[in-house]
Design a protein around this nucleic acid. Structure first.
Lengths: 224, 224
DNA sequence: GCGGATCTTGATGAATCCTTGACGCCGCCC
DNA sequence: GGGCGGCGTCAAGGATTCATCAAGATCCGC
């Protein structure tokens, strides 16, 4: 099932979209502000995002920019404004399509189909393997020596964020806000505790990690 | 150079688009009917196609369908009709975007950029290479002889500022205020200490640097 | 309500990083 | 030649950050 994240502050539109999209076979998640949207995107990893630019807590373009920091998910931007400056700004910030309110639902659905059609090509296999363990992002499973490794929800979320950003350095703030929420951006203790647990469960030698690396003072990095 | 095929039967619009797109660095081919469009697409294999639905010899949707028989090139559809049925039809026939006339040229250009960004596969990696080492600004990573180089946060920040201003001279004040903050504009010996560390880690011969150069009395400069 | 799993929290020693000062070299001007 | 300022190098200290452990607190299914 195709997951769609709908971000809008208008409860009526949200409701209408949820019903329509569900009727057309999408698995819908909703968010009413930018903060919730970013959290939901990290949690549910949708295949498509519909983003209204007018949000109560932050600018839609800012939401888009932050999302683009770690995700390539296709984004369809909604806006009430017809000005071409807004369109240009949103498209250059990383939006894949732009549609102005009011719009027809059939057009919206057609644009979603067009976006999805394009993204299936570069859909990566959600399977990441190292010489010590294998992570299946789709099935939410980790295997080591052919055996399933049992991870707690928090351990899994943390590993997921790191694996989705493989090779890349993930800052402590990024990890904390995607796993625990933005309010926990100072609790770097959590990272140490859970990183130690992940290493104990996954690394051949937890004292000399080769896949879950520490970048002192900045964050962590996952290498295959 | 990015090749664009523009298909329209209006000679004035064709001319305007050709001039504008060329001015923005595209390599433009034009066609005035569907038949010529398909032939041109096969011949020039453009990176983008702009297709007007109103053509003299055949229906634009039909052109699109035939094109999709063998090519995945991103197609931006132009149309004078605002009806949503046309949009739905075009998008489901394989169009990647849809824009109605009249349209702003800046919006068209923005949509082209968005299309290209998606198709050209994950954009250009922000990667800066010298013959001795490679800096990946996106992944926050430095490689030398295939091995990761371990940099401290301060070393990285300093290198980042220099690399972002590659070829250009970065003054001591600029470096100090971007890495340590404006209050440290006098602590030029910090620069000496960290520049020495960077050279030791990155330069083949730290005593005769070829990429991290000193401009005596002024600042430093990074050369590839 | 019970028991087990999971999540917080605090404390400790170890490792890493930043700062600071001292020293010598080099080029330039007096 | 001597003085001077800018630069490169080195090493030690103190501060910050990290890994690890263990003891409560909390959540959840039964």
């Amino acid at each position: 099932m195709t997951g769609v994240l709908v971000v809008d502050d208008d409860p009526y539109l949200l409701r209408a979209l949820r019903i329509t999209l569900r009727a057309h076979g999408y698995d819908v998640t909703v968010a009413e502000d930018g903060r919730a949207a970013l959290a939901a995107a990290a949690r549910t990893t949708p295949a498509l995002v519909i983003l209204d630019l007018g949000l109560p807590d932050m600018d839609g373009v800012e939401v888009l920019a932050q999302l683009r920091g770690w995700s390539q998910v296709p984004v369809l931007v909604l806006s009430a404004r017809h000005g071409s400056a807004d369109k240009v700004q949103a498209l250059d910030a990383g939006a894949d399509d732009y549609i102005t309110k009011p719009f027809g639902l059939d057009e919206l659905l057609a644009r979603l189909r067009a976006l999805r059609r394009r993204s299936v090509d570069d859909a990566e296999p959600p399977l990441v393997a190292t010489d010590a363990f294998t992570v299946d992002l789709g099935k939410r499973r980790v295997t080591r020596d052919g055996e399933d490794v049992r991870l707690t929800p928090t351990e899994w979320k943390m590993l997921e964020v790191l694996v989705r950003n493989r090779e890349k350095l993930v800052t402590q703030q990024q990890l904390l806000s995607e796993v625990w929420g933005p309010a926990y951006a100072k609790e770097t203790n959590y990272l140490r505790v859970y990183m130690a647990q992940l290493r104990r469960k996954l690394e051949p030698d937890a004292a000399a990690p080769r896949h879950l690396l520490t970048e002192a003072g900045i964050g962590y990095r996952f290498l295959t």
